[in-house]
Write a protein that binds this DNA or RNA. Structure first.
Lengths: 168, 168, 168, 168
DNA sequence: TTTT
DNA sequence: TTTT
């Protein structure tokens, strides 16, 4: 049987506004990061918090919805698949790897009124949200396949980040 | 609210036998990789297959169960959380990052009789499996927290791999 | 292989305040309902919304956390397993079935300030939340097993509901 | 925000061969059951096993794939959403409820050679599997929406089952 | 480096 | 770089 399951699910907060780019072939791509927080007691019994950062990629209509409605700090549910891309480190000439979640479903959580920076324009499209989501979800799935031919080299906007040696 | 969701779920096949180590503090750790396969039609309408490789880490009792029962080629369900570790690249002095799934639940899929290399010893413990699973699952959760203080430098056995510049 | 996966995950809003009871054996049990909403276009292309109601059961410490912090209208993430209980319909003498989600993880979503009825007492325990969650989660798992011997007859509060012919 | 998450995920074995019907409007529907097994220690420390039965519904192309490739005993991964349908009990005149998983993704697990009753015809379509899956998945999603207008009365084949007082 |  |  030649299939499997590759699924990641997050609930967390955006660390950055989504950045929207368009590939040479005309595809929309949005990149952003999401932080998930975890509480645990350390060996001394003290409550500790740990933050994990995740790199998210969305394609097509879903990318545009992310760019339009998501802002830094917003709480979201993200569903997608794990994908490890490789690229050549310009500084060292080595091959390097980055793991991302290719988003196929996104849900905004909490109330928009409650989210800093979200409702600035005051025109949050209540009636249209479901429709936008539905379309986004469909395109998310569709794009995953077509984008399989997308070059694995990092997009232009990423090279500055590499200089800082940060994962994103 | 200071919590979130960080979950990864895979169904795939092991690419390597699990390697079991023991940390200086006496914790068992198992490392292995899992391949997930995806079929899609490319732009020419041809059926293509893409394989994604995932790096898995299990701790404690669950690590021992993985090492004992899993073998290269075995089909498994893996559930866990995403974790990006950083380490210093000895060759370039740069900080580098690896994303892993810290396993909290594992299910062997298919029949053991059907799995190459699995039943060699002939002593697959039918009656004991559920118990082993149950304990493994519990320890999986438990260990995730205690291990939060585990040094983020790569364990000894990993440095050879880095020399090859492979993600795992 | 004698195991499997039985998982349900919801993001929705509580339809009722959680009701906390204590079983004869001293176990805490909380019952509440969660609505999930779905948007879709009907055959005429009109945007429709459909609501699905889910019956949630939590045990032990997690039950107490639910009763303490969740209120009608609150947005939550629920993770658990599906369980179909049977009971005897007093009116007809027939065996009847109810499917519930036995909750093993719960996350409050959005901001507490934004939630109607949530912050009335003004004493939302900031520093303690993570700890409460952690404990709840662990107990959620633990209780699922011990409670397997819990009588499958419906809890007292349910029989009134049946009279109204509501699913919960 | 008018959306949410409603997801169920199972790994288990079919309790029945899928039954394929066609609705008056020409939609294919497949019904089958899946058992998930869980091991736990009871209060006396003895290992117990509990089986939970789940009722699965698939629509459209995915229904046809299920009917074609799945057989009683086969191990599968099922992903879908929870849906509670109501219908009128002919015997008592009461409204009754059944919870099902509306399947949007299905993966056959294990090896087909290893599955009883699976490879009888000897013509398991190796090259076509991925394609069939992909289409099924897409149609699974698509059908969920169009089928929202499907009458909630129970299909003909169910009434016999009710006589036996079985959940399915 | 897996599997079909 | 998020949130509580």
């Amino acid at each position: 049987m030649a299939r499997g399951l590759n699924k990641a699910m997050l609930i967390g907060h955006l660390g950055t506004d989504p950045e929207l780019r368009v590939t040479p072939s005309g595809q929309s791509v949005a990149n952003f990061t999401v932080a998930t927080n975890e509480s645990f007691k350390d060996s001394s019994g003290n409550l500790q918090e740990r933050t994990e950062w995740h790199r998210i990629v969305a394609w097509g209509r879903l990318a545009e919805i992310c760019q339009q409605y998501l802002k830094k700090g917003r709480q979201v549910y993200i569903e997608g698949k794990l994908q490890t891309r490789s690229w050549d480190d310009q500084k060292t000439g080595e091959k390097r790897y980055t793991t991302e979640i290719v988003c196929s479903d996104m849900q905004m959580l909490g109330s928009p009124r409650d989210q800093g920076g979200f409702n600035q324009g005051g025109n949050y499209p209540q009636g249209n949200t479901g429709q936008a989501y539905g379309g986004g979800n469909f395109q998310g799935r569709d794009q995953q396949q077509q984008n399989s031919g997308y070059p694995s080299s990092p997009p232009g906007g990423m090279q500055e980040q590499e200089k800082d040696d940060l994962p994103f």
